[in-house]
Design a protein around this nucleic acid. Structure first.
Lengths: 104, 104
DNA sequence: CCAACACATAAGCACAGACTTATGTGTTGG
DNA sequence: CCAACACATAAGTCTGTGCTTATGTGTTGG
């Protein structure tokens, strides 16, 4: 169940910080580590968890591995949210109507 | 930081199951426990975590406590999602444009 | 009133997970 | 080639957390 991995991945503040850093654009592991006062293996482990949750994807280029946000994870969260559409605040709720119209 | 409590709360499958049960409508703790093969204190503890994350709210009626989904938590998740709007899949992305138009 | 009820809190246990240091694996410039 | 680099994996530690049983608190019908 991928939902479990997604929410578990986002439950850790360090991983959310890494994810947010990647929102600025594609980056390698060393660049992600800058200013984080955490060991290199810890970064590697966190990135592995994010990758398994489909929140992040990697692209190896020589001896560097570039990471970037994976839209799949975000889409899965959006899908989860939509299940509780009936309880969204009114302003957000209208979005779901549009989503339904856009289904193929 | 409420985000941390929200994602931590949703990281547990039992809590997500309780949340999903509440999507069917307002319910008290005993009703939520039905078919869950878990102790009563465990339910109470989970509901406390969900409440602190603003995913659930309670309303005491006599000696019964009715729980229901709190839209605030869902709105906070939607707000977090919107921060990564640039990476949403195209179909979902259009929703954000509408959201922007609806801002007061 | 008070016994039964509905739920919360306390205390303790066992396992998960976030970190560390040490080491392994693959890549590249000189 | 091989040393330096970029990252992954291994192994161990320590804290957090999800569960249990036991007990506490507030409410209500008879």
């Amino acid at each position: 169940m991928i939902e479990n991995e997604i929410f578990r991945a986002l439950a850790d503040p360090t991983r959310r910080a890494l994810f947010e850093k990647l929102a600025a654009g594609r980056m390698n592991a060393s660049a992600l580590r800058q200013g984080m006062s955490i060991s290199q293996p810890a970064i590697s482990q966190h990135l592995s968890v994010l990758r398994q949750a489909r929140l992040v994807r990697e692209e190896r280029q020589g001896r560097v591995v570039n990471y970037e946000i994976d839209p799949d994870g975000l889409a899965l969260i959006a899908g989860w949210l939509e299940r509780y559409r009936a309880y969204w605040p009114a302003r957000v709720n209208a979005l779901s109507d549009l989503l339904k119209d856009m289904e193929p």
